[in-house]
């Protein structure tokens, strides 16, 4: 089982990131679970969401304290939130930023990966929507979920509620980030 923590700001869609991740993992024939940091959401305030992906049924229902992977949707959080808190030794830290990992001054034994999802989102959506695009980076780096399942999960989440156009843009953005991620 791998445990994932997603950091974002209220309104950025960290909870949706977890949902689409869990749906995609299930399409990949894995078991999954996702939940938000329980509480009162305020726009712009730091928020967290959590996910678990496993080959076996997931029973544990406590919160996640020692994630294997941390995703940061907004690099400005690095200044105020300890995004590496509890991250396992050699754990993966995926950050949305135009900086290189070596420029972030996180001098710990983590697998730090950066991707400039904001620039890609601005080109595709015309707005800095990064919560779904970052899943492209997650898929490429961790191989825990496939790109194909991600696009299916996008359809399941957005087709009915937001329409075909939004779903297609999200898929385009995820694929672009996937391709750009090394």
């Amino acid at each position: 089982m791998i445990e994932i923590r997603i950091h974002g700001r209220g309104g950025q869609g960290a909870v949706t990131t977890g949902q689409i991740m869990a749906i995609a993992a299930f399409y990949d024939n894995k078991q999954s679970q996702t939940f938000p940091m329980f509480g009162v959401e305020r726009s712009g305030a730091p928020v967290q969401a959590f996910a678990r992906i496993s080959d076996e049924k997931i029973n544990i229902r406590s919160q996640i304290y020692n994630p294997d992977i941390v995703i940061v949707l907004d690099a400005s959080l690095l200044e105020t939130v300890d995004v590496t808190s509890g991250l396992k030794e050699k754990g993966t830290l995926i950050i949305n930023t135009n900086k290189k990992p070596s420029d972030l001054n996180i001098n710990r034994n983590f697998n730090i990966r950066t991707v400039d999802a904001t620039s890609i989102a601005l080109k595709i959506f015309g707005r800095p929507i990064v919560n779904t695009p970052m899943l492209g980076a997650f898929s490429k780096i961790t191989k825990e979920i496939s790109l194909n399942s991600l696009t299916k999960a996008i359809d399941e989440t957005f087709l009915k509620t937001k329409g075909k156009k939004i779903a297609e843009l999200n898929k385009k953005a995820i694929t672009a980030v996937y391709n750009q991620t090394k």
Partner: peptide, 10 residues
């Protein structure tokens, strides 16, 4: 509440 009500799972 939350601990189950807000959890997504299969």
């Amino acid at each position: 509440g939350f601990t189950l009500s807000h959890v997504y799972e299969p």
